[in-house]
Design a protein around this nucleic acid. Structure first.
Lengths: 226, 226
DNA sequence: GCATACATTAATGTATACGTTGTCAAGAAT
DNA sequence: ATTCTTGACAACGTATACATTAATGTATGC
């Protein structure tokens, strides 16, 4: 067998999910807009059936809403939505940080987490906001993975998707998150030393601060819908 | 307009979701079993299409898994699954308790929560485990509602579904949860007095204790799969 | 001139037919 | 006897045709 990449025969339904997600995240299907199933099917070059199934999947993920006779509606994200999302992330990630600390990981198992912090610092030096955001995503994802709770990882990934949609707008509005890295290092150290309570506390404070900053930003700039 | 119940013309797809959920919770479709789409369609008296859509919905809810050529598999719940689920519930409900305390609810707005506690006490007096479980469900659901975060409510409802599946087995194995009610009253009082930190702490301890009890029970009785 | 009722239409919801593919078993070869 | 191959079958994935239903526009009556 050739060692090439997966010869994965993806179903059209799965392809539709991917493509629609891309279209939504790229803003080509703008928040609040409605799209007929037949229109999307035409655009994706397949029949309505797999598109319909993809729409159901995306609805379960909270990205769209399927309305009878009005097509699939790309859900907008209000300030209140962002508040809810950040609170869920705060609760679950903080718990994950604590659980990670309880696992007694060897330092080498924490290399990826450490690397994301280094990458964030590098990005900050270069004032590269995109790179910082990408590394920040990796940090939070890895943190949750280390927590060892698959359901938490799934839920957090869903919520993080929503945050990412909003970031297109918010990333360049806020000041560079210089303070964040102290928090990240603190969480890492707490995990290394096995101090679960401290890991939870630091991360919770970190998320709360992020939320506060973002909320103020959204309210100031009157970006009530994304 | 007559004040009778909704003349709701539910779609077959929605009906299929309901019926399949009932069949799963009743154990008629046992955990771990596989069922062909055509078989389920025949049983529900409709074509494969709405059944397929229902299966996708239930898959997103974590109740089943659709495997190519092997039909829909009713997902079993392992001890590890229950542990993950309880941890998610602990984190989100505890936060909800704190948020509820911050809302400065008038006492009349907390009547339903109070009523569930009364009902639990009544059920305990009568040693009616089913009634206790039903009231306990209402307590947790109402608590989360009072927290005011819709996403938390949705996620908790999903997780609570899974717990309910397992309860058919566990409800009659464990001792009557006499101690629970002190916790419930404590949470209620903390919400009334607006002590968010206390509400969170008490509820978190309550959920942790419940988890511990359940875990021991499951391991002792060697009920590794449900 | 406005409101109401009806007809038309367009989009969803559902059924069905068909192509595709993995599975399983039977038989042959080693 | 075991393993590999091959072929048939069965179930899913997808397309398409059809039924259902709600929205819209028009016509008619008050």
């Amino acid at each position: 067998m050739v060692a090439s990449g997966h010869p994965k025969p993806k179903s059209n339904s799965a392809i539709a999910v991917e493509k629609l997600r891309e279209l939504i995240f790229a803003g080509i299907l703008p928040a609040g807009s409605n799209h007929l199933e037949s229109e999307l099917a035409l655009r994706l070059g397949m029949s309505r059936t797999p598109v319909r199934e993809a729409a159901l999947t995306l609805e379960a993920q909270g990205l769209v809403q399927v309305q009878a006779r009005r097509g699939v509606r790309i859900l907008p994200i209000s300030i209140r939505d962002m508040e809810e999302i950040y609170d869920v992330l705060t609760a679950l990630e903080s718990m994950a940080a604590g659980q990670a600390a309880r696992q007694n990981y060897a330092e080498e198992e924490l290399q990826e987490l450490q690397q994301t912090i280094v990458d964030m610092e590098d990005a900050l030096d270069r004032e590269d906001r995109e790179a910082w955001a990408a590394a920040d995503d990796r940090f939070h994802k890895e943190l949750v993975r280390l927590g060892g709770n698959g359901r938490v990882a799934t839920i957090v990934a869903l919520m993080a998707d929503q945050v990412r949609r909003a970031r297109a707008v918010t990333l360049y509005l806020r000041p560079l998150p210089l303070k964040s890295n102290a928090d990240h290092r603190g969480v890492l150290e707490a995990i290394i030393t096995g101090d679960a309570e401290r890991a939870t506390r630091i991360h919770s404070a970190h998320r709360s601060a992020s939320k506060k900053t973002l909320m103020q930003l959204l309210k100031q700039t009157k970006l009530h819908m994304l």
